[in-house]
Structure formats: structure tokens, C-alpha cells
């Protein structure tokens, strides 16, 4: 009993995906991945953030067997993805970024195909439940051609889950997806995590990562810039800017305002305040109170979340 428990605990410590010194240089000479090291923990939701062309899709494609690596190694559930490709791939499901579906097929035929392709015996009950969970059951006999874009994406998810994988990759799952489907998708992903599936998703949207992920990895120009627990990272990333348009220009900041956090533009018409969303008290109301105290009127207010790109720039600069 004790031994079994120790083994189990030992197994759960071992990463479900381990990427070591992974390199990829395309034939064109473009270096997409530069010696990537990454470990994904068993059962977590891991969000991989990065701008376009950062290497997110290349990384996922190598792990799933769609792109050949130039160097390095990857294990999935302890299995080498090249040497033990059968066992490794059986554990992995992939929802690609592009809506690549055979439009002439029916929903039912395509999920059945996927299950068989991944070496699983037919199990109509499982597939029925899967389609029901994804609100696709009513559409099972429709050809994919007749489905909306959002529905097609659900079909891709159903295909990826048809063989009951332990690891699910979602490459930009919410690109071009409406709010309702996005909400459904997150609910489904949480449910999968409860069932013990490890989920790796890539996204542009920081809010999405904030909402869903346990850990976040940032990739830029083929390098992992950082991997951090979400809460720790949000503190760094969640910077906002409040811009206050003044009704009349002022010559200098009023004395009751903290000049470290607030700056005045040269024309004296705009105040800019930087703050973080992670803190309980953003300091916005305090600042507005101080302006009122000083008798300064303002005509407009706006806030802006620092864009992912700005964050990358700052992250990369920090690392250098």
C-alpha cells in the first residue's frame, strides 16, 4: 500500500511532457525554435503565450509528430515521441489552429474515423457522450460543410478527444470563436482537467490565459522567455494605464499627487497614471479624489491594458 502510494506520488511528480534542447530550423533557414526546454506538469492547464511567429505552433507540431525537429528530444508520459511514437501519440490529442476538416463527411463519420485512426476499438457510447458534451449530437448526421465556423471547431475538438487522450493540445482554440462557444469551451476544458487530462493551449489573449491556466509560458522568437505560475505572472503582466484629459492645462502636478506614479504630459493637458490590476487597491479612486481636492477638473478618462506586445518587449528587455 505504502509502496503503491509512493509510486503514484513519484509518477505524479514526473512531468507529462518534457521538452529538452529542442531546436527547429526550417529549410528556408528560419530558426523557429532555439534550444527549448519545457516541462508540463501532469494534470495542469498550461497556456503558451506568444505573438505570431513566436514558435508556438512549431513547438506543438513537433510534439504531435507533424513537424520534424532539428535537434533535441521530447517525451510524452515518459515515452519518447520518436522511438515510442505509437504509445506516445495515442496519449495525445490535437486541436489545430486551422479549421482543417473534410467538409463532405458527416460529424459522426469523422469522429468515428478519428477514434479508429488512433487505434481505439469502436465505442459508440463514448462518442455519443462526447458529441452531446460538445452540443454536436443533434448535428451528428449533418455534413461538416453545413456547419458554422464555431461548430466546425467543436468538431475538431470532438475529433481530438475521440480516442480519449491524456494530453490535449489546443492551438489558438478561440481564434474567431463567438463568446458563447468560448464560454462553453472553457467549461469543457475545466471539465477535462477534472477528469485528469493535461491541457496545453496557445493563445494571443492574455485574459484567456488569466482565466484558465495554472501556469503560463511565454515564448518569443523561438525562445521560452519565462514559465511562471499564473498568479505570480499576472502581477508582472497586469499593468494598466489611466489617462486623464484635463479640462484646462496645468503647469505642474498638484502637490498632493504622488509624482512617482503619475506623470504630466508636456502640454499640461493630460495626466498618465500607471498601476497594476493585481493589487487590491488600484489607486484610481485615490488619484481622482486628489485631483478633486486640488480643484482640477477633467473632461475625459480612459484606461488601457498593456498589450501583449508591450509586455513581451518589457519581458525580453528584462531578460537581457
Amino acid at each position: 500500500m505504502t509502496q503503491a502510494m509512493t509510486l503514484e506520488q513519484g509518477a505524479s511528480v514526473e512531468p507529462i511532457i518534457a521538452v529538452r534542447s529542442l531546436n527547429k530550423t526550417y529549410q528556408s533557414g528560419f530558426c523557429a525554435l532555439k534550444s527549448i526546454d519545457l516541462e508540463i506538469k501532469r494534470g495542469e492547464i498550461f497556456a503558451l503565450l506568444g505573438p505570431n511567429g513566436a514558435g508556438k505552433t512549431t513547438l506543438i507540431s513537433i510534439i504531435c509528430g507533424i513537424v520534424n525537429a532539428s535537434g533535441g528530444e521530447v517525451t510524452a508520459d515518459g515515452l519518447d515521441i520518436l522511438r515510442d511514437y505509437r504509445e506516445a501519440r495515442q496519449r495525445i490529442g490535437l486541436v489545430p489552429q486551422e479549421l482543417a476538416v473534410n467538409i463532405f463527411e458527416t460529424v459522426w463519420a469523422t469522429v468515428k474515423f478519428s477514434r479508429g485512426l488512433f487505434g481505439c476499438a469502436p465505442d459508440d457510447n463514448y462518442l455519443e457522450q462526447l458529441l452531446k458534451n460538445l452540443s454536436l449530437w443533434d448535428k451528428r448526421d449533418s455534413t461538416i460543410m453545413a456547419l458554422s465556423g464555431g461548430m466546425k471547431r467543436r468538431v475538431l475538438i470532438a475529433k481530438a478527444l475521440a480516442h480519449e487522450p491524456k494530453i490535449l493540445f489546443l492551438d489558438e482554440p478561440t481564434a474567431g470563436v463567438d463568446v458563447e462557444l468560448r464560454r462553453d469551451m472553457w467549461a469543457m476544458i475545466r471539465k477535462l482537467r477534472e477528469d485528469g487530462v493535461t491541457i496545453i493551449l496557445t493563445t494571443h489573449y492574455i485574459e484567456e490565459a488569466e482565466d484558465m491556466a495554472d501556469r503560463i509560458g511565454v515564448i518569443n522568437k523561438g525562445e521560452i522567455v519565462l514559465v511562471e505560475e499564473k498568479h505570480a505572472l499576472m502581477k508582472q503582466l497586469g499593468r494598466k494605464t489611466l489617462t486623464v484629459q484635463l479640462a484646462r492645462p496645468i503647469a505642474r502636478l498638484p502637490t498632493n499627487v504622488n509624482s512617482d506614479a503619475v506623470s504630466l504630459t508636456q502640454d499640461g493637458r493630460t495626466l498618465v497614471y500607471q498601476y497594476t490590476t493585481a493589487a487590491d487597491d488600484s489607486g484610481v479612486s485615490q488619484l481622482l479624489g486628489q485631483l478633486q481636492e486640488a480643484g482640477i477638473e477633467y473632461s475625459d478618462l480612459s484606461t488601457k491594458q498593456s498589450s501583449l506586445e508591450e509586455i513581451f518587449v518589457s519581458l525580453v528587455e528584462e531578460k537581457q
Binding site: 504531435c64 504509445e87 495515442q90 485512426l117
Partner: peptide
């Protein structure tokens, strides 16, 4: 683009 599935299958 559906070749992705064949390439990623065991």
C-alpha cells in the same frame, strides 16, 4: 490540411 490528423496518429 486534414493531413495533420494522419501525421499525428499512431
Amino acid at each position: 490540411g486534414t493531413i495533420y490528423e494522419i501525421l499525428s496518429a499512431p
